[in-house]
Simulated assay, not measured.
Amino acid sequence: MIAAFFRDFGIFSEEEIAQVLQLFTIRKLSKGEYFAREHEKSNEVAFIRSGIFRSFYTTPNGDDITYCFRFPNDLMAAYSSFITGGPSVEAIQAIVPTELYVIQKNKLDQLVLEKPIWTMFLKIIAEQQYLELEKRVFQLQKETAAQRYASLLKNQPEFILQIPLHYLASYLGITQRHLSRIRKEITS
């Protein structure tokens, strides 16, 4: 699964893929455990083998706002912390039991020093993250909550039912009651 992820980029040799796979460790997290915590440093990236994660931040009045979900075959990191070395502005929490392949930043940095192809890989990942962020901003500005829910349902139908309603409502920027109405309309 993770080898296929690297193959899909079309830039790595089998030897390079084998080399990077040796640098990952397997980590299992239970439902509710954190991969990254808000205000703490995070220096690792994970490939999700199984499970679902939510990324969220806490408002000044103590509410947490879910802004992203991560599913199997996704990479995830607290990117601002990973890049700057500073505290994370987000938390990343397992919604269900999960299994990850995790690599430390210093190991990626060493790969970059040894082979420039890894710089290209990190550039592609950064570009993908930018496009995902841009898509999210446009969704929030151009689409209704019902359209955003329908998109999530279309793209992740096998996982959407595992996400608690209060996280989905937070992600969509609506109340749970409004989400219930949307779900009834879509399934009718």
Results as ranks from 00 to 15, higher is better:
102 V>L: 05
136 R>Q: 13
101 Y>S: 10
77 A>P: 06
117 I>E: 04
149 Y>P: 07
96 V>S: 10
97 P>K: 08
130 Y>G: 03
143 E>Q: 14
90 E>H: 06
117 I>K: 12
130 Y>I: 11
129 Q>Y: 12
123 K>L: 11
114 E>C: 08
135 K>M: 15
84 T>K: 09
114 E>N: 12
123 K>D: 13
117 I>A: 05
150 A>L: 10
143 E>D: 15
121 F>S: 03
130 Y>Q: 09
122 L>P: 01
128 Q>E: 10
91 A>F: 12
126 A>H: 01
71 F>T: 10
148 R>E: 00
150 A>D: 03
80 S>D: 15
123 K>I: 04
133 L>V: 12
88 S>A: 15
71 F>E: 09
71 F>Q: 09
127 E>W: 04
137 V>I: 15
105 K>R: 14
113 L>T: 10
77 A>C: 11
94 A>I: 09
142 K>S: 14
89 V>L: 14
78 A>C: 08
126 A>C: 12
139 Q>I: 00
96 V>T: 15
73 N>Y: 04
128 Q>C: 01
83 I>F: 02
77 A>I: 05
121 F>R: 01
98 T>R: 05
114 E>G: 03
127 E>A: 06
134 E>L: 12
150 A>N: 00
117 I>L: 06
85 G>Q: 02
116 P>T: 11
74 D>E: 15
143 E>T: 10
109 D>R: 06
116 P>L: 10
85 G>K: 00
128 Q>H: 11
71 F>H: 07
146 A>W: 00
91 A>S: 15
146 A>H: 00
109 D>G: 06
139 Q>D: 13
148 R>W: 01
144 T>H: 08
145 A>I: 13
146 A>L: 08
87 P>D: 11
140 L>Q: 14
131 L>G: 03
131 L>H: 11
91 A>E: 10
124 I>V: 15
86 G>Y: 01
102 V>W: 02
93 Q>E: 15
94 A>L: 06
80 S>G: 11
140 L>N: 15
109 D>N: 14
92 I>N: 05
74 D>Q: 12
